[in-house]
Design a protein around this nucleic acid. Structure first.
Length: 828
DNA sequence: GACCTGCTGCGGCGTG
């Protein structure tokens, strides 16, 4: 690849080799396509030069097409827009790019624009755009909300979307889709020297890579789409999975989530490595693990740190840097370290508890092993006996490349409403063109003219239900151009751009003014001053709440309350569920080679003796009678969301046979129906009860979908700009937000039941809260499965974790441990 | 407004 430049290199390869680097085959492939002005998707794992694969291509293309132009200090305008989902990635990428420009003798500048960018820098960019701009999806929309922003894009040559797999499947991805439609639309391209800019995505491996490309490039003209390509980096890493095994499986708890009993076994692993990442599934449990490790291995003091999403940003950055510099030996973390800045690999990774999905596990494993060819090593630490099966299932899943897909989101009207207000805040938009433009996106390809006019009516006059309220008449139709003219409305809108809706958090501040992190209002409101809680690895005494900060002082108390934060509840993925069911096939055969299955043998034998181990094509149902009542346990292994919905449907269907009430419990493996009378399900009616027939009506009758939709509606209302969340720093109570959303929900339900956003709330409940596609697939599977019904005398290893979770609510943890021991006792 | 085990991610206030 030719390279004309002042430093005397004639090819890019030569320049790279001068730096002691060599071009990978996939990089050269991508460069060639970029030079040909194609668009496409690069599929490459982190840390193998994926930035260069796109960035250098754009540079070579420009230099070759505009000889001499790049040497001058003349205003070149924005050539390359680099979209990244993480602010933290921007600095490192920017530095790498600047270095390239310097070494090639180019006068190009790299700018960064996100929430951290200073005002003066933004103004400088406005006067004189750098050639390369690194930006987040949100900041890009903020840019589109500026007057006269189109001028900035008249030289745009290439748009790159980094970590596309992270954005795809979320509303942030939809934001990117919409922005791409705009940048490739005639309003921006008419004056562009390059015509339509090329679009390049960079993505890790996901199950639906071709679809990921289609979504990304949907906005491009058909001929360009047809010529588009997928470039793959073939760098398979060997991965070794090592389970942390309890000494005696018979004595390891059948239920639990923490896994702390195996903490002793972690110490030697940490000590044998220079650096270790210990991944914990929740923030609260990561605090507990941190404390426990320090207690049993005090020598780690100073060499151990904690990293999760509720710890103050600066502390986290310190931890990341200290880890890089090998000042730390071990970091206890949550998914906050999943995506890291060009993260320097560590020696060892330990996963505590279920990773819930194959790709998450792979990604974490990939954090270890220093060179591309190195083997990655990951330890799996089960938090209860049965979970050990996941290690065997994961091994097989990785062998078979069962990476999860990320289905793109469709028809997110809340994001569209916000986006149109963004355009109206900027230069305004006209209706028919913008409709066509938006329709080019994958997300809105099926939008109807009726839906479009409903959206327009909604932003101009508040739709039907809200038309008497002035504050919902945001956009004016100014001779065919839709604009927001009111400055207060425009300002409020700019403050609310984005699709991430979070709960109200309070900052925790030490008496010396140092911030440690955030905590949820409902948690801290239950504590009295003087009580001790844990945050960022420290025990803190609550002093009081002042100016919406939680004031605290460091405490020496041994006892403390570990906070819990409200997070998402990632369910077990379909792929991992499938592999689990397959793995049970091997459980009792002598063929199992996996050490985990051998170790679990006593547990499997007990399960088989008391009940049954379901084969891949079987559905196991257990009837068990205890003094609590009559239990029915069902094990589909489809993740807790699907189980929650199915449990409700099954309960409803059974209640049609005979009047009966249930309480319901579930986990990722199965669910429980509990009643005070025998549950009438047996071989004669089991298949009928799991039929797909009337599924939707039965869902509506059984699940409280109104209540679920009401909660979903809160986020939609915030994204759609119906609720003003208050000025930054100004504290609005979470309760306040919920009640205004509830009120709007009520108004819509009463006066405009067909409202677009209301419908979307019900749709999201179905697709996200109940994973309807998966639920339906499960029922179809059961139609062909054999249903095995057993009547065990005691609680079985399979049902135990579900049973324990269902009684957790009423008991303190001490009582719970006693009860668990007593329950386990009658079994051999 | 309920979650009880429950992740991550961004953006905004100015005034000429």
């Amino acid at each position: 690849m030719k390279l004309y430049n002042t430093k005397g290199y004639t090819t890019i390869q030569e320049w790279l080799s001068q730096k002691g680097m060599q071009a990978f085959a996939f990089q050269e492939e991508a460069w060639q396509h970029i030079i040909n002005r194609q668009s496409g998707l690069v599929n490459a794992p982190t840390g193998c030069g994926k930035t260069y694969s796109v960035f250098l291509g754009a540079v070579i293309q420009f230099i070759n097409e505009h000889p001499g132009n790049w040497q001058t200090k003349q205003k070149n305008g924005l050539r390359l827009l680099w979209i990244t989902p993480l602010r933290a990635l921007a600095k490192d990428i920017g530095r790498a790019m600047e270095e390239v420009f310097y070494e090639l003798g180019m006068q190009w500048k790299v700018g960064i624009r996100n929430g951290d960018t200073e005002m003066s820098e933004r103004q400088k960019q406005k006067r004189n755009m750098p050639e390369v701009l690194i930006i987040t999806p949100e900041s890009l929309h903020l840019l589109l909300a500026q007057k006269g922003n189109a001028d900035a894009f008249h030289q745009l040559q290439l748009v790159a979307i980094d970590e596309w797999h992270e954005l795809l499947g979320s509303k942030r991805g939809v934001q990117v889709e919409l922005a791409l439609c705009r940048l490739t639309g005639s309003y921006y391209t008419a004056k562009n020297t390059f015509g339509t800019p090329a679009i390049w995505g960079i993505s890790a491996t996901i199950g639906n890579l071709p679809e990921a490309k289609d979504v990304l490039l949907a906005s491009l003209p058909a001929p360009i789409q047809k010529k588009s390509v997928t470039v793959r980096a073939k760098m398979d890493k060997q991965i070794d999975i090592l389970s942390v095994l309890p000494d005696e499986i018979e004595k390891y708890p059948w239920a639990g989530h923490l896994g702390i009993r195996l903490a002793e076994k972690v110490i030697p692993i940490i000590e044998q490595s220079n650096t270790t990442l210990l991944f914990i599934n929740t923030r609260g449990m990561s605090e507990r693990w941190y404390q426990t490790l320090l207690t049993i291995a005090p020598q780690l003091a100073g060499a151990i740190a904690l990293h999760h999403g509720s710890i103050e940003h600066e502390l986290r950055i310190w931890v990341e840097e200290a880890l890089h510099a090998q000042k730390l030996k071990v970091v206890v973390c949550t998914a906050s370290l999943d995506l890291g800045v060009d993260f320097r690999p560590v020696d060892t990774v330990i996963q505590v508890g279920s990773p819930k999905g194959v790709s998450r596990f792979l990604q974490r494993a990939g954090r270890s092993g220093h060179r591309p060819g190195d083997t990655s090593k990951i330890f799996f630490l089960p938090t209860h006996s049965l979970e050990l099966v996941e290690a065997a299932a994961l091994q097989q899943a990785i062998k078979e490349d069962m990476i999860e897909s990320r289905p793109p989101m469709l028809l997110c009207f809340d994001v569209l409403v916000q986006y149109l207000c963004t355009l109206a805040t900027g230069d305004g938009f006209t209706s028919p063109d913008t409709f066509e433009e938006v329709k080019r996106s994958y997300c809105f390809s099926d939008i109807t003219p009726a839906e479009w006019s409903e959206v327009l009516s909604y932003i101009t006059e508040g739709g039907i239900a809200l038309q008497q309220y002035d504050e919902y008449r945001k956009v004016e139709n100014d001779n065919g151009v839709y604009r927001i003219k009111n400055r207060r409305i425009a300002m409020r809108h700019r403050m609310h751009i984005g699709t991430i809706v979070s709960d109200a958090m309070l900052k925790v501040k030490l008496m010396n003014g140092k911030f440690l992190g955030v905590i949820e209002e409902w948690f801290i409101s239950r504590l009295e001053p003087g009580e001790v809680f844990t945050l960022a690895g420290r025990n803190l005494e609550l002093v009081g709440i002042k100016d919406m900060n939680v004031m605290a002082r460091v405490s020496n108390s041994k006892k403390s309350i570990v906070p819990s934060w409200q997070g998402g509840r990632m369910p077990l993925s379909a792929n991992l569920g499938l592999m689990l069911r397959r793995t049970f096939d091997k459980a009792l055969t002598g063929k199992a080679r996996e050490i985990e299955l051998k170790v679990l043998k006593p547990l499997f034998q007990l399960q088989e003796q008391l009940s049954h181990i379901p084969k891949q094509d079987e559905l196991l149902i257990e009837h068990i009678e205890t003094k609590d009542g009559y239990h029915l346990f069902v094990y589909p292994f489809e993740g807790r969301l699907v189980h929650e919905a199915l449990a409700a449907i099954l309960a409803y269907r059974i209640a049609q046979i005979t009047p009966i009430t249930f309480s319901i419990a579930m986990n990722d493996y199965g669910f429980e129906l509990l009643s005070d009378q025998p549950i009438p399900i047996d071989d004669s009616n089991a298949h009928e009860l799991f039929t797909t027939r009337d599924l939707l009506t039965d869902i509506q009758r059984s699940v409280n979908s109104v209540e679920m939709a009401r909660r979903k509606f809160r986020d939609i209302a915030v994204i759609g700009g119906l609720i003003f969340q208050g000025y930054p720093g100004e504290h609005k109570k979470a309760r306040h937000l919920q009640s205004s959303a509830s009120l709007l929900f009520k108004v819509f339900s009463e006066y405009e039941p067909d409202n677009l956003l209301l419908r979307q709330a019900y749709q999201e409940v179905l697709s996200q809260q109940m994973e309807e596609t998966r639920l339906r697939a499960l029922l179809q599977r059961i139609e062909h499965n054999q249903i095995v019904i057993t009547y065990p005398k005691y609680l079985t290893p399979f049902c135990f974790p579900i049973k324990v979770d269902s009684m957790r609510e009423n008991l303190s943890s001490e009582q719970l441990e006693d009860r668990i021991l007593r329950m386990q006792a009658p079994n051999p």
